[in-house]
């Protein structure tokens, strides 16, 4: 069992998971196989920094899509809460509910904050083979921006180019 509060590093196979994306639909990491995935763990819907962070990603989804990457947000909030948050912020990417058992996926990725009972603010870029290529744990009050994600995606592209 991995340490729930030590972030999984680059090179680690990304643990697969299936989580609710709406009250009656689920999404699995393996659904994205063949494409890069960005996992953005964040503490809570509606808290100000998270809103700014996800709002920024929402603005630059087309940049992520240029690298054929999909973005997924994850917090311990329920899918009903995610639905309300997503519609108010007009988010165009899925939010997954790590709600029951609470924080199970956050723990697997080593980004659970036990004393707060929430996910940390952490980013993962996972390649099409399901390997973590970049991970980053941000101080919880600091919005990490998108520069690290874009660099990791570019590194993936050049790696793929070198292989081809």
């Amino acid at each position: 069992m991995p340490d729930p509060s030590t972030i999984l590093p680059a090179g680690t196979p990304a643990p697969d998971f299936t989580l609710p994306v709406t009250p009656d639909q689920t999404l699995s990491l393996s659904d994205f196989r063949g494409r890069p995935v960005i996992l953005a763990f964040y503490p809570n819907d509606f808290s100000p920094v998270c809103g700014d962070q996800l709002g920024l990603y929402n603005e630059i989804l087309s940049e992520f899509h240029k690298h054929h990457a999909e973005l997924v947000g994850i917090s311990v909030d329920s899918s009903w809460c995610h639905g309300a948050f997503s519609s108010i912020r007009k988010l165009h990417f899925p939010l997954l509910a790590d709600f029951e058992p609470k924080g199970a996926v956050s723990r697997q990725y080593g980004v659970y904050r036990g004393h707060e009972g929430t996910a940390a603010r952490a980013l993962f870029v996972i390649d099409g083979d399901g390997i973590i290529r970049w991970s980053y744990l941000s101080p919880v009050g600091v919005n990490p921006g998108a520069d690290g994600i874009l660099e990791a995606l570019e590194a993936l592209d050049s790696h793929a180019g070198a292989k081809a």
């Binding site: 700014d52 962070q53 940049e63 919005n143 998108a146 520069d147």
Partner: peptide, 11 residues
């Protein structure tokens, strides 16, 4: 905008 994104503008 993109120069900002690449520089870590976060809001």
């Amino acid at each position: 905008f993109m120069s900002g994104v690449r520089s870590g503008v976060n809001g």
